[in-house]
Each structure stands twice: as C-alpha cells, then as structure tokens.
Write a protein that binds this DNA or RNA. Structure first.
Length: 486
RNA sequence: CGGGCUGUAGUGUAACGGUAGCACGAGACGUUUGGGACGUUUUAGUCCGGGUUCAAAUCCCGGCAGCCCGACCA
C-alpha cells in the first residue's frame, strides 16, 4: 500500500477508533448532532448512502412480491401491551406522547419502536382465506427507541429503517421468507457495502422480543467488536394468535397464520464507515458511492490554462457519464489543490482523476485510487472502458480486504482459559463449542463482556458429538460465535 | 438509567472571581495553486435556568447536550 495522507484534525483510526469514527462522521459530511439526545441530522452525503441502500433492497423486495405501505408512527399504549414478551422487551425504550392539541390525551400514544403490533392488527382484517396468503408488506420509515447510550448511526434515538412484515399459511412458507430476507441482507452487505459478514441464528436470549427465532447479519468491526447489522425473525404465531390472524384453508379449517418480520436500518452506514474508513477519512465502495469518480482540474496560476483544463475536464466528465459512471467535476481553481484533494478523500470518493497541463499535453489522465492511493496514467480514449473496470476492481478489493480482516479477527478456541485470554488481550470474534444454556451464556458475558453473536448458517446442520461447552463443560452440539458488541 | 470527564464565535482553543483573547473558518479585495497558500480588512462567542458576590466563562445547585465506563439495545 502507498502512503496514507493523514488529515488535519482527524484522529488516526489506529490510535483511537472511537474518536476517529466521530471525526469521520462529521468531517466527511455524513451527519451532525441534533439538539435532542441521540438524534442525528443526516446530511446529503450520508443520506445519499441511505437512498442507495433503499433503492437496491426495495428492488429486490418488489421482485419477490413484497408491497410497500405506510403505518402510523403512533401506537395506542393498550394495543402495544398485548404481546407480553414484546412489551417487556421494548417498554424500557419507548417514547410516549401524553399531550397533544394542548390537552392531556385520554390514552397515551407510544411512538413506534417497531410495527409488529399495528401491522398484525390489520393482518387480522385482511387475511381471511388461504388465498390471501402469503401477504408481504414493507415500510420505509423512522422509528424511535430511547437508548440509554447513543452513538452516531450505530445507535440513535430515532433511526430510519425498513421493516418487512409477512404472513404465511405455515411455518415452512414463513421460514422460506425469513431466509430470503436474510439472504437479501447478506447479499447487500457483500455485494454493495463490500463487507464480509457472519450470518446466522441468534441464541434464545438474544432473539427479538416476541420472536420464535431470530437470524442476523453480524459485521466484524476492525476493533474486534460485533455490529448486528440486519435481522430476520420467524415470529411463528406469537402475534397472530394475540390478534386472531386466522384463515380458512382449502378444507375450510380455521388456522393461525405464521408470521415473519425483518429489518435493516441506518446503522448499516455506521458499519460501512467502520469497516472501510482509514486515516484519510471515509472510503466508499464504488457500488454505493454517491460519486464514484471525482475529476480534479489543475491549472496552475494561468487563466488561459484554467479554461483549457475546464474544457478538458468537461470532455472527460461526458465520457464517463456516458459510460454510466457517477461522476463529479471539481474545477474550483480558487482553492488550492491540496485542499481539494483532502476534501474528496475525506468524503471517500473511490477514484480521483487528476487533469492538468501535463495530462492535457499528453491527452491522458492521472487516476488515483482512494483505497490504496495507487496512481497511474491512462489515455483519455481508454477511460470509458478502464474506469468502470477499475471501479469493479476496487469494489472486489475492498471486499477481499474486509473478508481478510474478518478472518484475521476470528479465532477458534476450545478451553475457557484460552477464551478468557483472547477476550481480554485482543477483543475479537471467538468460535467455540457452547451448550446453548442461557445461564451459561450469561456467566460468559459477565466474565468477558462477550456474548453469543450467532450460530453460523452453515454450521446449524453440523452437529458435534463428544464436545464439551467451552465454559461449563456440558455437551455442546454446535460451535457458536462470541464477541463483544456495539 | 448509574459512575467519570466535558460544555467559551461555524470549528479548535485561551482568560487568578475583575477589559472575553488567539488560530482556523466565513465575506470582500489583491497575490497564489501538481498534496490542506499568503497579505489587508470585515464577521461572529461564554449551553439553559437559578444562586453566591460590589463583580461569574470562572464558585454552588438544577437542567440539557457530548464523550468514556457499566446495565439495555438495530
């Protein structure tokens, strides 16, 4: 790797990853703090990443027959209290409206922390026959969870997400949906965010409040901690039996529908920042970068040259735009070159094309990769082919780097001593046999701050024999992933 | 929600209980421009609410917000 250009006022990632993260969020223009605790103003550069996320996932949802809709942000407290595990799980973090229109409300309104309740209520009206199934809805919305400890993007009091809610005739159909949604998320992280995650089943104590089973996508943050980055729940009939979501099957028998829900939030952007960013700021994968290429005009002090360079930049801009590249031109000659370069690097634009007198004369351009800072010249004629190809290479290289980092930050242990020493020394993911007992899990967490993250999908079928739990020694059937979490 | 630290122009900082200063930024003009330029000039601030005091950015109390450490979570 070539040298990394540090930034004025930007903490180095290796020195303090938390300070670095906050600096990048602000300096790259992704978001700012709002006046309300834990609330965030998402700025255009950050919101563009969310819009890209939306457009990709929304396309996949619709191909599968999921329809978008919108439910109210307010939920009557009485409705919210109907599912016991659900309300116990969420009530500590509910925001509740008690006054409106200048008067105290007869019944307080919860600001939705998720919409299982209100959507399931409607499912009971909308689902009558097996012919109504499956019914697949999704909404893109904001939700509020009054977290005690907040962190930009990763854990904000209000956040944006999509929540998919579906009902099916039986468990088998519902499980297909659960796995389909999980695969969308996994595919999105791998293919667009260039992040290699772990995907698997949550333990019973870590599952969604009200779910039968929860599956999740877990990102390995470079400091060795885990970020739960999307979830897909099999709700069985837990909500449908509370709200009588029943249908008549072909034989005329009444049956309870089986339900799923699944979501991905703006937290994803936090994962993206953490995984790819470096000491120069944000690094965006080309597939999601709002601007994939920035063309920087360099003119010296020469007015005539400024005009020539501006024209040349425009020419290149058109070539790239016609080639389907998201491109932006910077011909703000009033600012010094260094300033402009640093600014675009902070923002994470994957590829920079420098164009000045030298390039003009040679009819070429200088290409500089954001991820490696590798620099080379390319003839202008070849740009329309080379740039899209290079963007793909950058995308793949970022993924490979993420995969390498994930693997480097994961280790397998079989004894409790090893487990403890790894968790205290380094902080990383540990794969170890576990008995699946909740009290054992709680003790592990108490002693190491690390909890179970998931049982990887491809290990669910693989059943161990004669293997003791890494902590308590009771028989373990699977190797689970453990880590400290964000 | 508990413990610790913090809160001064847009940003970063300084000021013993006694004139709120500096740098960057932003605006104007001029000179500059191949990795964060310079001069002249203009601009803008003590988180909010109480208290102590002749006098509060400074001390005290409460609130709000940020960061860190716990408990909780997408």
């Amino acid at each position: 790797m070539s040298k990394v250009f540090g930034k004025k006022g930007l903490t180095k990632k290796s020195e303090n990853i938390s300070d670095w993260y906050h600096d990048v969020v602000l300096r790259a223009g992704l978001a700012e703090y709002a006046d309300v605790k834990g609330c965030m103003i998402i700025k255009p550069h950050g919101y563009a990443l969310w819009e890209k996320t939306q457009s990709v996932l929304d396309g996949w949802f619709k191909e599968d027959g999921v329809q978008n809709c919108y439910f109210p942000v307010f939920i009557p407290m009485s409705a919210f209290q109907k599912e016991k595990e659900h309300v116990e799980g969420f009530s500590p973090e509910l925001a509740v409206v008690t006054h409106a229109g200048g008067e105290e409300l007869a019944e307080p309104l919860a600001v939705r922390p998720t919409s299982e309740i209100v959507i399931t209520q409607k499912f009971s009206d909308w689902v009558q026959s097996h012919r109504d199934l499956p019914m697949k809805l999704n909404q893109w919305c904001n939700i509020v969870r009054w977290e005690k400890r907040t962190y930009p993007f990763l854990r904000t009091s209000e956040f944006l997400w999509q929540e998919g809610h579906t009902v099916h005739a039986d468990k088998k159909d519902a499980m297909v949906m659960v796995m389909t949604a999980l695969e969308w998320y996994s595919k999105f992280y791998r293919g667009y965010f260039a992040i290699a995650p772990y995907v698997g089943l949550k333990s019973q104590s870590e599952k969604f409040a009200g779910a039968e089973d929860t599956y999740s996508v877990e990102i390995v943050v470079p400091d060795g901690k885990a970020l739960q980055s999307a979830t897909s729940h099999y709700l069985a009939d837990h909500f449908t039996k509370v709200f009588n979501v029943e249908y008549l099957d072909e034989e005329g028998n009444k049956k309870l529908a089986h339900q799923t829900s699944w979501g991905l939030s703006t937290r994803a952007i936090g994962g993206l920042i953490f995984v790819h960013g470096d000491d120069s700021g944000l690094v965006l994968p080309p597939a999601v970068a709002p601007q994939q290429v920035v063309i920087i005009g360099i003119a010296g002090k020469d007015q005539e040259m400024e005009e020539k360079v501006a024209t040349y930049v425009g020419h290149i801009h058109k070539i790239l735009k016609d080639a389907g590249v998201r491109v932006v031109s910077d011909i703000d000659f009033r600012k010094t070159l260094g300033f402009r370069i640093n600014d675009w690097e902070l923002k994470g634009v994957p590829l920079r094309i420098e164009v000045g007198g030298k390039e003009l004369e040679a009819q070429n351009t200088t290409l500089v990769r954001r991820d490696t800072f590798a620099k080379h010249q390319t003839n202008t004629d070849l740009l329309s082919l080379e740039v899209p190809a290079l963007l793909e290479i950058i995308q793949k290289d970022l993924y490979k780097k993420s995969e390498q980092s994930r693997n480097d930050l994961t280790t397998e242990v079989s004894t409790w001593d090893e487990f403890k020493s790894v968790m205290t020394d380094k902080k990383m993911f540990i794969r170890a046999p576990w008995c699946e007992d909740a009290s054992c899990e709680a003790t592990i967490k108490e002693e190491t701050k690390a909890g179970t993250r998931c049982l990887e999908l491809d290990r669910i079928q693989e059943v161990l024999s004669d293997t003791p739990c890494v902590h308590c020694g009771k028989p373990a059937l699977h190797k689970w992933l453990f880590a400290q979490s964000y």
